[in-house]
Design a protein around this nucleic acid. Structure first.
Length: 291
DNA sequence: ACCAGCTCCTGCTTGC
DNA sequence: TGCAAGCAGGAGCTGG
Protein backbone atom coordinates (compact mmCIF):
# COMPACT_ATOMS: atom_id res chain seq x y z
CA UNK A 1 0.00 0.00 0.00
CA UNK A 2 0.46 3.42 -0.23
CA UNK A 3 2.40 4.72 2.75
CA UNK A 4 2.33 8.34 3.88
CA UNK A 5 3.98 9.85 0.75
CA UNK A 6 1.62 7.99 -1.57
CA UNK A 7 -1.48 8.97 0.42
CA UNK A 8 -0.29 12.57 0.46
CA UNK A 9 0.24 12.46 -3.31
CA UNK A 10 -3.28 11.11 -3.78
CA UNK A 11 -4.65 13.86 -1.52
CA UNK A 12 -2.95 16.53 -3.59
CA UNK A 13 -4.27 14.97 -6.77
CA UNK A 14 -7.82 14.96 -5.42
CA UNK A 15 -7.78 18.54 -4.11
CA UNK A 16 -8.82 20.26 -7.36
CA UNK A 17 -11.84 18.02 -7.89
CA UNK A 18 -12.91 17.57 -4.28
CA UNK A 19 -12.07 20.44 -1.96
CA UNK A 20 -14.71 23.15 -2.23
CA UNK A 21 -16.80 20.95 -4.51
CA UNK A 22 -20.19 19.30 -4.18
CA UNK A 23 -20.55 15.56 -4.27
CA UNK A 24 -23.24 15.09 -6.88
CA UNK A 25 -23.54 11.39 -6.21
CA UNK A 26 -21.78 8.46 -4.61
CA UNK A 27 -22.26 4.85 -5.51
CA UNK A 28 -20.95 1.65 -3.97
CA UNK A 29 -20.73 -1.47 -6.08
CA UNK A 30 -20.48 -3.96 -3.21
CA UNK A 31 -21.48 -4.03 0.45
CA UNK A 32 -18.08 -3.84 2.07
CA UNK A 33 -14.38 -3.33 1.75
CA UNK A 34 -12.33 -4.44 4.78
CA UNK A 35 -15.33 -3.33 6.85
CA UNK A 36 -18.94 -2.76 5.76
CA UNK A 37 -19.91 0.65 4.46
CA UNK A 38 -21.90 2.58 7.10
CA UNK A 39 -25.70 2.73 6.84
CA UNK A 40 -27.02 5.03 4.08
CA UNK A 41 -23.45 5.75 3.00
CA UNK A 42 -24.36 7.09 -0.44
CA UNK A 43 -27.26 9.23 0.80
CA UNK A 44 -25.13 10.83 3.51
CA UNK A 45 -22.61 11.92 0.86
CA UNK A 46 -25.00 13.08 -1.84
CA UNK A 47 -25.21 16.85 -2.17
CA UNK A 48 -22.58 17.51 0.48
CA UNK A 49 -19.75 20.01 0.04
CA UNK A 50 -16.20 18.97 0.86
CA UNK A 51 -14.85 21.78 3.02
CA UNK A 52 -11.37 20.37 3.58
CA UNK A 53 -9.48 17.37 2.29
CA UNK A 54 -6.75 16.44 4.69
CA UNK A 55 -4.59 13.49 5.68
CA UNK A 56 -4.00 11.85 9.05
CA UNK A 57 -1.44 9.05 9.04
CA UNK A 58 -2.40 6.94 6.01
CA UNK A 59 -6.04 8.07 6.09
CA UNK A 60 -7.63 10.60 3.78
CA UNK A 61 -10.19 12.74 5.62
CA UNK A 62 -12.78 14.77 3.72
CA UNK A 63 -14.64 17.11 6.06
CA UNK A 64 -18.20 17.65 4.83
CA UNK A 65 -20.64 20.50 5.46
CA UNK A 66 -22.91 18.02 7.25
CA UNK A 67 -20.58 17.74 10.25
CA UNK A 68 -19.42 14.33 9.12
CA UNK A 69 -16.10 13.34 7.55
CA UNK A 70 -15.54 10.79 4.85
CA UNK A 71 -12.65 8.55 5.92
CA UNK A 72 -10.70 6.64 3.28
CA UNK A 73 -7.86 4.17 3.77
CA UNK A 74 -6.23 2.75 0.66
CA UNK A 75 -5.08 -0.46 2.33
CA UNK A 76 -2.44 -2.27 0.31
CA UNK A 77 -3.81 -1.81 -3.18
CA UNK A 78 -6.35 1.01 -3.15
CA UNK A 79 -6.24 3.75 -5.76
CA UNK A 80 -8.23 6.82 -6.60
CA UNK A 81 -8.54 7.66 -10.28
CA UNK A 82 -9.99 10.90 -11.56
CA UNK A 83 -11.80 11.10 -14.88
CA UNK A 84 -12.50 14.66 -15.94
CA UNK A 85 -14.68 16.10 -18.62
CA UNK A 86 -13.01 18.49 -21.02
CA UNK A 87 -9.57 17.13 -20.27
CA UNK A 88 -7.04 18.71 -22.59
CA UNK A 89 -4.83 16.21 -24.35
CA UNK A 90 -1.51 16.77 -26.05
CA UNK A 91 -1.61 18.36 -29.54
CA UNK A 92 -2.86 15.91 -32.11
CA UNK A 93 -5.21 14.25 -29.65
CA UNK A 94 -8.83 15.08 -29.16
CA UNK A 95 -10.51 16.86 -26.33
CA UNK A 96 -12.82 14.67 -24.33
CA UNK A 97 -16.34 15.99 -23.77
CA UNK A 98 -17.74 13.15 -21.74
CA UNK A 99 -16.55 10.52 -19.38
CA UNK A 100 -16.95 7.09 -20.87
CA UNK A 101 -19.88 5.31 -19.25
CA UNK A 102 -17.76 2.32 -18.40
CA UNK A 103 -15.17 4.28 -16.41
CA UNK A 104 -15.51 3.05 -12.86
CA UNK A 105 -17.14 -0.24 -13.76
CA UNK A 106 -14.10 -2.49 -13.74
CA UNK A 107 -14.13 -5.66 -11.64
CA UNK A 108 -12.44 -4.00 -8.66
CA UNK A 109 -13.91 -0.52 -8.96
CA UNK A 110 -15.84 -0.39 -5.69
CA UNK A 111 -16.90 3.23 -5.18
CA UNK A 112 -17.73 5.96 -7.69
CA UNK A 113 -18.10 9.63 -6.79
CA UNK A 114 -19.30 12.32 -9.17
CA UNK A 115 -18.42 15.88 -8.23
CA UNK A 116 -19.36 19.21 -9.76
CA UNK A 117 -15.71 19.90 -10.72
CA UNK A 118 -16.93 18.15 -12.90
CA UNK A 119 -15.19 14.87 -12.33
CA UNK A 120 -15.72 11.22 -11.64
CA UNK A 121 -13.55 9.79 -8.88
CA UNK A 122 -13.22 6.02 -8.83
CA UNK A 123 -11.92 4.01 -5.87
CA UNK A 124 -10.34 0.76 -7.01
CA UNK A 125 -8.98 -1.86 -4.63
CA UNK A 126 -8.50 -5.41 -5.82
CA UNK A 127 -7.37 -6.73 -2.44
CA UNK A 128 -10.04 -4.87 -0.50
CA UNK A 129 -7.76 -4.16 2.47
CA UNK A 130 -8.88 -0.56 2.20
CA UNK A 131 -11.82 0.96 4.03
CA UNK A 132 -14.26 3.81 3.65
CA UNK A 133 -16.53 5.12 6.36
CA UNK A 134 -18.24 8.23 7.75
CA UNK A 135 -17.54 9.66 11.21
CA UNK A 136 -18.61 12.81 13.02
CA UNK A 137 -15.87 15.36 12.33
CA UNK A 138 -15.57 16.51 15.94
CA UNK A 139 -15.32 12.93 17.19
CA UNK A 140 -12.57 11.75 14.85
CA UNK A 141 -9.74 11.93 17.35
CA UNK A 142 -11.66 9.83 19.86
CA UNK A 143 -12.64 7.19 17.31
CA UNK A 144 -10.97 3.80 17.51
CA UNK A 145 -9.45 4.35 14.06
CA UNK A 146 -7.53 7.41 15.23
CA UNK A 147 -7.26 7.49 19.00
CA UNK A 148 -4.00 5.53 19.31
CA UNK A 149 -2.18 6.94 16.29
CA UNK A 150 1.11 8.64 17.05
CA UNK A 151 2.46 12.00 15.88
CA UNK A 152 2.65 13.04 12.24
CA UNK A 153 6.30 12.53 11.27
CA UNK A 154 6.49 15.73 9.21
CA UNK A 155 5.10 17.94 11.97
CA UNK A 156 6.93 19.69 14.79
CA UNK A 157 5.31 17.31 17.26
CA UNK A 158 7.60 14.56 15.99
CA UNK A 159 10.97 15.20 17.58
CA UNK A 160 13.86 13.39 19.22
CA UNK A 161 12.38 13.56 22.75
CA UNK A 162 8.99 12.37 21.52
CA UNK A 163 10.45 9.42 19.63
CA UNK A 164 12.74 8.54 22.53
CA UNK A 165 9.80 8.53 24.91
CA UNK A 166 7.75 6.32 22.57
CA UNK A 167 10.58 3.79 22.28
CA UNK A 168 11.46 3.73 25.95
CA UNK A 169 11.36 0.20 27.31
CA UNK A 170 10.39 -1.31 23.96
CA UNK A 171 11.93 -4.75 23.58
CA UNK A 172 10.95 -5.21 19.97
CA UNK A 173 13.21 -4.26 17.04
CA UNK A 174 13.38 -0.67 15.83
CA UNK A 175 12.05 -1.94 12.48
CA UNK A 176 8.90 -3.33 14.08
CA UNK A 177 8.55 -0.30 16.37
CA UNK A 178 8.55 2.18 13.48
CA UNK A 179 5.90 0.14 11.67
CA UNK A 180 3.71 0.54 14.75
CA UNK A 181 1.39 3.46 13.97
CA UNK A 182 1.21 4.33 17.67
CA UNK A 183 4.90 5.25 17.69
CA UNK A 184 4.82 7.43 14.59
CA UNK A 185 2.08 7.80 11.99
CA UNK A 186 2.26 6.89 8.34
CA UNK A 187 5.41 4.82 7.96
CA UNK A 188 5.22 1.46 6.23
CA UNK A 189 7.69 -1.23 5.28
CA UNK A 190 9.46 0.67 2.51
CA UNK A 191 10.09 3.96 4.23
CA UNK A 192 11.12 2.33 7.50
CA UNK A 193 13.83 0.46 5.61
CA UNK A 194 14.91 3.61 3.82
CA UNK A 195 14.92 5.79 6.94
CA UNK A 196 16.96 3.28 8.94
CA UNK A 197 19.47 3.10 6.10
CA UNK A 198 19.82 6.88 6.01
CA UNK A 199 20.28 6.93 9.78
CA UNK A 200 22.89 4.10 9.66
CA UNK A 201 20.83 2.17 12.22
CA UNK A 202 20.40 -1.60 12.01
CA UNK A 203 16.77 -2.71 11.72
CA UNK A 204 17.60 -5.50 14.20
CA UNK A 205 18.60 -3.09 16.96
CA UNK A 206 16.37 -3.14 20.02
CA UNK A 207 14.01 -0.17 19.89
CA UNK A 208 14.80 1.04 23.40
CA UNK A 209 18.46 1.60 22.45
CA UNK A 210 17.54 4.29 19.91
CA UNK A 211 16.54 6.88 22.50
CA UNK A 212 18.92 9.84 22.72
CA UNK A 213 21.77 10.29 20.21
CA UNK A 214 20.47 7.76 17.68
CA UNK A 215 17.00 9.28 17.79
CA UNK A 216 18.58 12.64 16.96
CA UNK A 217 19.78 11.08 13.72
CA UNK A 218 16.71 8.97 13.02
CA UNK A 219 14.08 11.71 13.32
CA UNK A 220 15.55 13.91 10.56
CA UNK A 221 16.23 10.80 8.44
CA UNK A 222 12.53 9.90 8.60
CA UNK A 223 11.47 13.46 7.77
CA UNK A 224 13.85 13.67 4.83
CA UNK A 225 12.98 10.35 3.25
CA UNK A 226 9.25 11.12 3.45
CA UNK A 227 9.77 14.66 2.15
CA UNK A 228 11.87 13.42 -0.77
CA UNK A 229 9.28 10.78 -1.63
CA UNK A 230 6.39 13.27 -1.58
CA UNK A 231 8.38 15.55 -3.83
CA UNK A 232 8.84 12.63 -6.24
CA UNK A 233 5.11 11.83 -6.29
CA UNK A 234 5.45 8.69 -4.17
CA UNK A 235 6.70 5.25 -5.13
CA UNK A 236 5.12 2.78 -7.50
CA UNK A 237 5.86 -0.89 -7.01
CA UNK A 238 2.82 -2.95 -7.87
CA UNK A 239 -0.42 -1.39 -6.88
CA UNK A 240 0.02 2.30 -6.44
CA UNK A 241 -0.79 4.98 -9.01
CA UNK A 242 -1.46 8.67 -8.78
CA UNK A 243 -4.94 10.05 -9.36
CA UNK A 244 -4.24 10.67 -13.05
CA UNK A 245 -3.14 7.07 -13.49
CA UNK A 246 0.54 8.02 -13.76
CA UNK A 247 3.20 6.42 -11.63
CA UNK A 248 5.31 7.84 -8.83
CA UNK A 249 9.03 7.55 -9.37
CA UNK A 250 10.62 7.56 -5.92
CA UNK A 251 11.12 3.79 -6.27
CA UNK A 252 14.04 4.56 -8.55
CA UNK A 253 15.67 6.32 -5.62
CA UNK A 254 15.36 3.50 -3.09
CA UNK A 255 18.71 2.87 -1.46
CA UNK A 256 17.97 -0.55 0.02
CA UNK A 257 14.33 -1.56 -0.49
CA UNK A 258 14.06 -4.51 -2.89
CA UNK A 259 17.79 -4.28 -3.62
CA UNK A 260 18.97 -7.55 -2.08
CA UNK A 261 22.41 -8.53 -3.33
CA UNK A 262 23.24 -5.10 -4.73
CA UNK A 263 26.22 -3.10 -3.48
CA UNK A 264 25.48 -0.67 -0.67
CA UNK A 265 25.03 2.83 -2.15
CA UNK A 266 26.52 4.58 0.90
CA UNK A 267 29.66 6.52 0.10
CA UNK A 268 32.76 4.48 0.93
CA UNK A 269 30.77 1.43 2.06
CA UNK A 270 31.72 -1.91 0.53
CA UNK A 271 28.77 -3.78 1.97
CA UNK A 272 26.04 -5.72 0.17
CA UNK A 273 22.32 -5.22 0.74
CA UNK A 274 20.77 -8.10 2.66
CA UNK A 275 17.17 -9.19 3.11
CA UNK A 276 15.74 -10.62 6.29
CA UNK A 277 12.25 -11.27 7.58
CA UNK A 278 11.02 -9.45 10.69
CA UNK A 279 7.47 -9.89 11.94
CA UNK A 280 6.68 -11.59 8.65
CA UNK A 281 7.79 -8.65 6.55
CA UNK A 282 10.87 -8.22 4.37
CA UNK A 283 13.55 -5.94 5.71
CA UNK A 284 16.34 -4.66 3.47
CA UNK A 285 19.50 -3.21 4.96
CA UNK A 286 23.29 -3.00 4.75
CA UNK A 287 24.92 -4.97 7.58
CA UNK A 288 28.20 -3.12 6.98
CA UNK A 289 27.06 0.45 7.60
CA UNK A 290 23.86 0.05 9.63
CA UNK A 291 24.77 -0.63 13.23
C1' DA B 1 0.97 -4.57 28.73
C1' DC B 2 3.61 -6.16 25.28
C1' DC B 3 4.77 -8.75 21.38
C1' DA B 4 4.97 -12.30 17.55
C1' DG B 5 2.14 -14.50 14.47
C1' DC B 6 -1.87 -15.04 11.75
C1' DT B 7 -5.42 -13.32 8.78
C1' DC B 8 -8.32 -10.80 5.41
C1' DC B 9 -8.10 -10.63 -0.41
C1' DT B 10 -6.40 -10.87 -5.26
C1' DG B 11 -2.81 -10.81 -8.64
C1' DC B 12 1.84 -10.97 -10.11
C1' DT B 13 6.31 -13.34 -10.10
C1' DT B 14 9.10 -17.24 -9.48
C1' DG B 15 10.53 -21.86 -9.72
C1' DC B 16 9.78 -26.58 -10.84
C1' DT C 1 3.89 -23.75 -21.38
C1' DG C 2 1.49 -24.77 -17.17
C1' DC C 3 0.74 -24.78 -12.60
C1' DA C 4 1.23 -23.95 -7.71
C1' DA C 5 3.62 -21.73 -4.21
C1' DG C 6 5.24 -17.59 -2.49
C1' DC C 7 5.08 -12.88 -1.98
C1' DA C 8 3.13 -7.98 -1.78
C1' DG C 9 3.28 -1.26 0.38
C1' DG C 10 -1.61 -2.51 6.12
C1' DA C 11 -3.40 -3.33 10.32
C1' DG C 12 -6.73 -5.66 13.54
C1' DC C 13 -7.08 -9.64 16.23
C1' DT C 14 -5.54 -13.67 19.01
C1' DG C 15 -3.04 -16.00 22.28
C1' DG C 16 1.28 -16.64 24.75
Amino acid sequence: MPELPEVETVRRGLLPVLEGHHIVSAKTRRGNLRIPFPPRFAERLKGRTVQHLRRRAKYLVADLDSGESLIVHLGMSGRMTIYRKGKVFMPGEFEQDTIAAEEGHGLHDHVIFETDAPARIVFTDHRRFGLMTLLKTDELDADKLFKDIGPEPLGNAFSEPVLSAALKGKKTSIKAALLDQRVVAGLGNIYVCEALFRAHISPKRKASTIAGKRAEVLVPAIKRVLGDAIEAGGSTLRDYAKTDGSLGYFQHRFSVYDREGEPCPAKGCKGTIKRLVQAGRSTFFCPACQK
